[in-house]
Structure formats: C-alpha cells, structure tokens
C-alpha cells in the first residue's frame, strides 16, 4: 500500500447525501477480476448520459473543479461492501474523502487502499463546500500525522479522529495481512484452545 503522510490539493465538491456504492461504481462494472481501471466508471451514471455523452452538470465534468480531495455529503459510501468503490475513487485519483459521516464498510475499504476518509463536523463540511464552490482554486491541506484538515489562506481548520493502528498503517504503507500473518502462532494457539474447549 502507498504511504500517506501529508497532502495539499484542490477539491471537488459533491454535496449529495447518502451517496451509495451503486452510484460510486454500478454493479455492471464488477465483472473484472483485477483491481485496475475502475476510475473510468467512477460515478458512471451521474457522469455520463445513457448514450455515453458527458453530463455537463455533474461536478467531475466541470473543469473548474479538480484535485485529490472529494468533499461529499452525509453518509457517504452506504450500501454494498464492494471494495470496487474504493478502487474506483483511488484509480480516478482521489486520496482523501471528506464527509460528515461515512458508512462502516466503505470506511474500512478506503483505509485498506490508502484512501483517507476524514469525518468532519456538519458545520465544517458546509463551510468547506461553500468555500470551494465560491473559489474552486482553494487549496485544502491534510496532515495525517497531526490529524487536521485546513483551508490554506483562511482561518479554517478542524482536527479529525483516526484509529491509532490504522494511522500507523497509512503512514508506513503497511496493511493488515502483514500484521495478521505475523500473529500466526497466536492464532494457532487459539485454534488449539478451541479444540479442547469447544463452543
């Protein structure tokens, strides 16, 4: 996994609530057997009309906005467990998703792919969206080590929570497989214990 330390980037606002994983990547694109290329179909049915032409009203087709930060509405990533959603966001180029609330499975999937979900207050989210809408060239600063997100040049900053273990993983580019495999002896001992103490 790629390391994540610090990020300065412009941002793309998507102020819609309950963005579900079927919108992030529709099921018909889940037939692939590898992890690459999902970015082309990110938000497919919002981004393109049925005839394949671009929907000019959708934010990803608005060339005013760009960057590695996606700012989304409440309850982002609800629905299915498909990790393809995290792969699509990452493949498209997003490294940070900001929202006031994330669905559980999506949050875990994002973290397992080096995409940082940052949960902020409703107030901060609203201000952030207004600021970026107003001035698309606004630069967002994300500091994982010190756990804050800020708007450069403005007095706008909020700290965010992250599990200490997950933070270490992101900063060092580790994943859970390395850790779990290193605990094999403990796991085998647990299995032995199960044999003698059946549940």
């Amino acid at each position: 996994m790629e390391k994540f330390l610090h990020l300065r980037s412009r941002a793309v606002p998507l102020p819609i609530e309950n963005v579900d994983t079927d919108q992030i990547i529709p099921a018909r694109f889940l037939k692939a057997t590898n992890r690459d290329g999902f970015g082309n179909n990110l938000f497919r049915d919002w981004r393109y009309h049925k005839d394949g032409s671009e929907n000019k009203e959708f934010v990803l087709n608005n060339n005013q906005f760009e960057g590695e930060v996606l700012i989304a509405g409440h309850n982002f990533g609800c629905g299915s467990s498909r990790e393809h959603a995290a792969w699509a966001l990452s493949d498209y180029g997003f490294k940070v998703i900001v929202s006031s609330f994330f669905a559980d499975i999506f949050k875990g999937n994002a973290l397992n792919n080096g995409v940082l979900p940052i949960q902020v207050s409703d107030k901060f989210l609203k201000t952030l969206i207004e600021t970026v809408n107003d001035k698309p060239e606004t630069t967002i600063e994300v500091n994982l080590k010190d756990q804050y997100i800020a708007v450069e040049g403005l007095n706008l900053k909020e700290s965010f929570d992250i599990d200490t273990y997950k933070k270490t993983c992101l900063i060092n580019g580790y994943d859970d497989i390395d850790f779990l495999v290193s605990k094999k002896t403990k796991i085998e001992a647990f299995e032995k214990h199960l044999l003698t103490n059946p549940r």
Partner: peptide
C-alpha cells in the same frame, strides 16, 4: 457481517480479521 475484498484476503491468509468492536 460483510467485508471488503482486502479483508477477504486477510481471512484467506489468517482466518482472522482486525476489527474494532462495534
């Protein structure tokens, strides 16, 4: 409970998952 594909790989590798208790 449902898991992502990275977690599917973790269970393949160790029959375990790393989780915060809900």
């Amino acid at each position: 409970f449902g898991i992502g594909t990275s977690q599917v790989a973790q269970v393949f590798a160790s029959q375990c998952l790393l989780l915060t208790k809900p």
